[in-house]
């Protein structure tokens, strides 16, 4: 598969490995992983919000992006109908997020934050960009 994600096992916490043809695609997949973990995927249409994240490098960018989604999830008490990463380079990502009010308590894992633990963003020999982030749950 050219893009996708998987949930990584960890005794106390949980990780996401996400990949895509571009960094933007990999970030979008990481977001899908987070939303699945949270149990916060909802049917649209919702309100569209623009999310812009800036960081020193691609790793910090991935952490910052997921933390931004967690912030919206908690403060807006919302789930996600869609996340589209419009563009991303190593220091800046721009995304459109479709938020839908949570109908009740989500049936997923509560996530506190994305961490820098074993953080990795790399371009594989086959050209695919892979992101690995661990979460504090």
């Amino acid at each position: 598969m050219r893009s996708g994600f998987e949930i990584l096992e960890h005794t106390a916490d949980v990780g996401i490995r996400a990949w895509g043809a571009t960094l933007a695609e990999a970030l979008e997949q990481a977001a899908r992983g987070l939303i699945e973990l949270l149990g916060a995927g909802l049917e649209g249409p919702g309100r569209t919000r623009r999310v812009v994240v800036e960081a020193e490098d691609a790793g910090a960018l991935a952490v910052g992006f997921l933390n931004e989604l967690l912030f919206l999830h908690e403060t807006e008490e919302a789930g996600f109908a869609a996340v589209r990463v419009v563009r991303a380079d190593d220091r800046r990502a721009e995304a459109e997020v479709e938020l839908v009010p949570l109908p009740g308590e989500p049936e997923g894992t509560a996530v506190k934050a994305a961490t820098y633990h074993r953080l990795a963003v790399e371009r594989r020999p086959d050209g695919i960009v892979e992101v690995r982030v661990y979460l504090d749950v």
Binding site: H10, T11, A12, D13, T115, Y116, H117, Y134, D136
Partner: peptide, 9 residues
Amino acid sequence: IHWGYGFPI
């Protein structure tokens, strides 16, 4: 003690 993120728990 168990595996944490960075520091052990």
